Structure formats: structure tokens, C-alpha cells
Amino acid sequence: MKNLHELASRLEGLPTAEGLALVADLFPGQVTFSSSLGQEDQVITALIAAQNLPIQIFSLDTGRLFPETLELLARTEAKYKLNIRLYYPGTDAVESLVAKNGINGFYESVENRKSCCYVRKVEPLKRALAGKQVWITGLRAEQSANRTEMKRVEWDEANQIIKYNPLLDWTYEQLLDYIQKEKIPYNPLHDKGFISIGCAPCTRAILPGEDARAGRWWWEESKKECGLHGK
């Protein structure tokens, strides 16, 4: 594979399942998928499992996840006979963060919140992506204004890796229809208005008319990103 343009051209127009299979074939043993157990990620997990693709699936356990999220992790592994690798934040880093800012210091400022996200998510992500060539995500352009600018295939400078967003153009209606049709397990919190689900203290249900990311860090004015996919 010479460049991103060539890869993007080969993936253009392919159904999602075929795109995942092509990437796995082009980069044997070098493709990894980050799942937060959201609806998008559950669809990708189902597609990987259905084709038995050699794509490593991992998730970040921040230590502040909803019990429903962890229960879904177990159900997903059982249904698809998969081993989803978990990455945790460093103990010393978490202890230092809490000692400095308090257990819920992320409510006090955007800077504190981003520090928490870095320790609990960004740093573990870097470890998860190390040595890989392609990072698959469940990002959709429709999720927020910040994500409309993303491309299906792009270069992630922060992690020095090719980033593949196979569901980028999917609508939320498409997503829900596919989940129902294929009987894909999902977080019951979605049925209670929690569309984008992250850490429990930082997630609320959205209100009618709000975009999917509005329920994340609702107390602050920001781009609603934690540093994994933008600042």
C-alpha cells in the first residue's frame, strides 16, 4: 500500500463488511479496532466476528464506566466468542491525578477534564495502538459538527497510524435498523436516551433536538472530544 489516497480509492464504494475484510488482508496482523461498546462499535464487532477477521478488538476500561457497559462487554464476548482485550490507565497516574484534582475534579474546568481523559483514555490508547498500522473506529460524521470534517481514511498524526472510519457515512437510522435486523447486543442505556456513552460521571441522556455528543461533558462548552479523536 503506497499511500492513503490509494487505500481510500480501494475502499471507496465497498460495503462495510468488505472494506473491513480488505483492510485486514492488506495489513495482516497490523489492524486493531477500538470499541467503546457503543452502538457503532457493536456493529463493527459483529461484522468482524461474522467473517472471523484477524483484527484485534480492544476497549479502554477507565475505571469509571457504567455497570451496564461492563455487562455488555461480557455479553458481547460470549455471543461472538471473542476476546476483547482491555487496557487500563496506569495506577500511579490515576493516583497522582486524584491526589491533585480530587476524585471528581473534572467538573471544575476543561483543563482538569482533559487531564482526566488523558490519564484514563489517551495514554492507554497509545499503548493499545503501538506497533499497529491501521486503527479502525466507529466514528460517524452525523455524531457532531467536529466529526463532519473527518474522512473515511485518514492519517492520525498523534498516534502515527492510519485511521479507518468504516461507518462514517452511516445515519443513526441505518445503525438502529442493522442492530435490530442482526440482533446485535447493545447497552440498555441507549433506550433511556444515552446515545454517546462514556464514563458514568461524564455522561447524561440527551434532550430532543440535541446532537449525539451533547450528553458528554454537558457542563462545559467544548467540542465534546476527549483527545482520542480530536481536541
Rank of each mutant, 00 (worst) to 15 (best):
Val31Arg: 00
Asn83Thr: 14
Tyr186Met: 08
Leu4Cys: 01
Ser115Ile: 10
Pro54Asp: 15
Phe27Asn: 05
Arg216Thr: 05
Ala46Gly: 00
Leu26Tyr: 02
Lys132Ile: 09
Lys223Phe: 12
Phe106Pro: 01
Ala145Val: 12
Phe27Ala: 00
Leu125Asn: 13
Lys121Pro: 01
Ser222Met: 07
Leu7Cys: 03
Asn3Trp: 02
Leu4Val: 06
Gly13Asn: 04
Ile161Ser: 09
Ser144Ile: 06
Asn101Glu: 12
Gln42His: 07
Ile195Ser: 08
Asn3Tyr: 02
Glu108Asn: 13
Thr203Pro: 07
Thr69Glu: 03
Ala214Thr: 05
Arg85Cys: 05
Glu221Asn: 11
Leu129Gln: 06
Thr76Val: 15
Gly227Thr: 09
Leu189Asp: 01
Pro15Met: 13
Tyr107Asp: 06
Val134Ile: 11
Glu108His: 11
Gly13Arg: 02
Ala93Lys: 12
Trp217Leu: 07
Ser96Cys: 06
Ser35Phe: 11
Pro54Ser: 12
Gly19Phe: 07
Lys223Glu: 14
Ile197Asn: 10
Asp211Gln: 06
Trp170Asn: 08
Leu167Glu: 10
Ala93Asn: 02
Ile206Gln: 01
Ala17Glu: 15
Ala141Met: 09
Ile57Met: 12
Trp217Arg: 03
Lys151Val: 00
Asp25Phe: 07
Ala128Lys: 07
Glu154Asn: 04
Leu4Asp: 04
Gln42Lys: 07
Glu18His: 05
Thr32Ser: 14
Leu139Asn: 00
Ala99Arg: 13
Arg140Asn: 05
Val110Arg: 12
Ile179Ser: 01
Asn112Phe: 04
Pro208Asp: 07
Ala74Gly: 08
Val31Leu: 00
Ile161Met: 10
Glu108Gly: 02
Gly193Pro: 08
Lys132Arg: 14
Gly29Val: 05
Glu210Asp: 15
Gln174Glu: 10
Phe106Trp: 15
Lys163His: 04
Gln180Asp: 15
Ser59Ile: 08
Ala200Gln: 13
Lys79Ile: 11
Lys79Glu: 10
Leu175Ile: 06
Asp177Pro: 04
Leu53Pro: 00
Gln133Phe: 02
Pro54Trp: 00
Gln30Asn: 13
Ala200Lys: 13
Val23Glu: 05
Gly29Leu: 08
Ala8Phe: 07
Ala78Trp: 04
Leu22Arg: 05
Gly90His: 07
Glu182Thr: 04
Thr62Pro: 00
Ala17Arg: 15
Ala74His: 07
Gly19Ser: 00
Trp219Phe: 12
Tyr80Cys: 06
Ala50Gly: 11
Leu37Lys: 04
Asp61Thr: 02
Pro124Phe: 14
Arg127Val: 14
His190Asn: 15
Met1Gln: 02
